[in-house]
């Protein structure tokens, strides 16, 4: 079935300069934009689907010292030292005689230490970085103001 609009469009070129009344019809459907809108929406959906939003980042800012400077005597206190290393092929935290594999256990133990002297996280070379950084985070969470990261010299 052919609608009146299609008849109008088909006959439009002939009607262009016939009379003033029919010339007004020129302005009605000069350019069909529906295809462009379809493509535009497709592009938009593509970019929305492929955009990856990166998660927000924060910082840990421990003080930094190399191994020779650990036992400085600027105060009468000696900071507590947590050594992050491999113990029996598994990453572990060594605090004095204690060997701790679990992060929550480490948090519980260091929270009982005095905060004034600060804490030193001595990290050896063969441990995952996430494991070492967890020790720094737990020290901050426990309330230590002075947290020092010491790369161990093997």
């Amino acid at each position: 079935m052919v609608c009146r609009q299609q008849i109008l469009q088909r006959n439009l070129p002939d009607m262009l300069f016939t009379n003033m009344q029919k010339r007004r019809l020129l302005n009605k459907t000069a350019l069909n934009l529906s295809s462009m809108i379809d493509v535009t929406f497709l592009l938009l959906i593509y970019f929305i689907a492929t955009t990856v939003f990166t998660p927000s980042e924060d910082m840990l800012s421990p003080a930094l010292k190399v191994e020779e400077g650990v036992t400085s005597q600027e105060q009468n206190f000696e900071p507590q030292i947590v050594t992050v290393t491999l113990y029996e092929a598994k990453p572990a935290y060594l605090l004095g005689e204690q060997v701790i594999h679990d992060r929550k256990q480490l948090a519980a133990i260091i929270s009982r230490l005095p905060h004034a002297p600060g804490i030193i996280i001595r990290v050896e070379n063969n441990v995952p970085i996430g494991f070492a950084i967890a020790a720094v985070q737990e020290s901050r969470n426990a309330g230590f103001e002075r947290v020092t990261y010491v790369p161990a010299s093997d």
């Binding site: 998660p55 924060d58 910082m59 840990l60 003080a63």
Partner: peptide, 16 residues
């Protein structure tokens, strides 16, 4: 290396 160049602390980025 950072310590050798006189930096006394460091920023280590974490993901929330």
């Amino acid at each position: 290396i950072l310590s050798k160049h006189g930096l006394s602390a460091t920023n280590i980025a974490t993901e929330s």
